[in-house]
C-alpha cells in the first residue's frame, strides 16, 4: 500500500476536503473508463453520422471493431450512444428485450 500512498500524497490546498459518495463498483467502473480513455475520441454527432452503416455491418456479422475502431470505442465510453446503437440493432434484428 506504500506505493499507493506515495501516488496520492496530498498537496497543500486551500480547498476544503469534500467526499463524494461512491460505491466500490462505481469506483471500479470509473477506473475502467479512465483506463480505456484514448487521446482522440469521436464526438456523439460523428458517431451518429456513422451509426446506420455501423449497425448494418454489425447485423451482417462483420468485424465492426476492425472496420470502425473509433466508433466502437465511443460506444464503449458513451452510455447514451450505446443505448441508441443497441435500440437500432433490436430493430434490424427484429428482436425484443
Amino acid at each position: 500500500m506504500k506505493w499507493l500512498k506515495r501516488l496520492f500524497r496530498s498537496k497543500k490546498t486551500a480547498k476544503p476536503e469534500k467526499k463524494m459518495a461512491m460505491t466500490s463498483d462505481q469506483a471500479e467502473k470509473m477506473l475502467r473508463m479512465i483506463e480505456h480513455t484514448q487521446a482522440e475520441e469521436l464526438s456523439c454527432d460523428e458517431v451518429f453520422d456513422l451509426l446506420d452503416v455501423y449497425a448494418e455491418m454489425a447485423a451482417r456479422g462483420e468485424d465492426v471493431g476492425e472496420l470502425y475502431p473509433l466508433v466502437e470505442h465511443h460506444l464503449e465510453m458513451c452510455p447514451d450512444c450505446r443505448e441508441e446503437y443497441e435500440a437500432v440493432m433490436r430493430i434490424l434484428e427484429q428482436r425484443t428485450e
Binding site: D52, V53, A55, D80, E83, E84, A87, V88
Partner: peptide, 17 residues
C-alpha cells in the same frame, strides 16, 4: 451508404430515447 430505412431508424431511435 446504408438502407434508407436504417438511416431513418437511427433518427427515430434518437428522438424516442
Amino acid at each position: 451508404r446504408s438502407k434508407f430505412t436504417t438511416w431513418v431508424h437511427t433518427i427515430s431511435v434518437r428522438i424516442a430515447l
